[in-house]
């Protein structure tokens, strides 16, 4: 029987690219997103035709945390791996005044995702196999003036994944953290991004797949972000707060 991968947030460009990448390597797919049945119908047809794999669509609102367990255990065939691509940038200015926007950013990027992964982790630990990939962000490596609320939620996710990795390691379950820098998506198509720091969703998917097969722990997309974020983290706070206005 074919192994399957569950992708949360499959409507995003990286989610779609990952679905194509895993299908290309012979996995069946379960794609979860809000209104997956309508929003991903054409994408799923395309994926089925191109890859000849089974593609199942499941609607999931990640913020309905009470429904997570039912959702996961009703999947029938349990997935070999779970990839969470969910992310919500939000509006920093609004979030610094409006609690609802703040909560939406924090819940979407961290609280709700972590709740879902708890369910998966417990199942994988029992079965003593599986992999979990969480898409975090370079924004979580250091809080910056422009997007520290989003960054803080991604920092929480990175810390969560790090702990989860240590917990599941002895049980043969692998947890990988992915920190993308710039990714060329539909939303950023019109913005000029520095080419050497910008990955296409397809690049990102290939890099993530290869890294997962090699059991990498934390990867940056593209890899050179590791050096950049390393340097940014080293900047002393008194300089960072005064001069680093990005």
């Amino acid at each position: 029987m074919m192994e399957s991968v569950l992708i949360l947030g499959a409507k995003s460009d990286i989610g779609k690219a990952l679905a194509r990448e895993y299908a290309r390597h012979g996995y069946d797919l379960i794609l979860a997103a809000r209104d997956a049945g309508t929003a991903l119908r054409d994408f799923a047809s395309d994926l089925r035709i191109r890859s000849q794999r089974n593609v199942i669509l499941r609607s999931l609102d990640i913020l309905s945390v009470e429904a997570h367990e039912d959702f996961y255990f009703s999947l029938g065939k349990r997935p070999a791996g779970v990839i969470c691509v969910i992310g919500y940038m939000g509006d920093q200015t609004a979030a610094s005044k409006d609690f609802r926007e703040f909560k939406r950013i924090t819940d979407t990027n961290y609280t709700a995702v972590a709740c879902f992964l708890n369910v998966v982790a417990n199942d994988f630990q029992r079965r003593r196999k599986g992999f979990i990939i969480g898409i975090s962000s370079v924004a979580g490596d250091r809080g910056r003036k422009k997007n520290y609320i989003y960054g803080a939620s991604k920092a929480a996710l990175s810390a969560y994944l790090s702990g989860l990795r240590a917990r599941l390691y002895p049980h043969g379950v692998h947890v990988m953290t992915v920190k993308p820098g710039f990714v060329k998506t539909r939303m950023t198509m019109a913005i000029k991004l520095p080419p050497i720091l910008t990955a296409t969703p397809e690049d990102a998917a290939r890099q993530i797949y290869t890294a997962q097969k090699k059991d990498k722990d934390v990867i940056y997309v593209k890899g050179r972000w590791r050096l950049i974020m390393g340097i940014i983290r080293l900047i002393p706070e008194r300089i960072f707060k005064a001069y680093c206005n990005f």
Binding site: K11, S12, I14, G15, G87, T185, R186, M187, M189, K192
Partner: peptide, 13 residues
């Protein structure tokens, strides 16, 4: 992430 395919986006002229 890009969920709004309905938005028309323009590349720089």
């Amino acid at each position: 992430m890009g969920e709004s395919a309905s938005v028309i986006m323009r590349q720089k002229v």
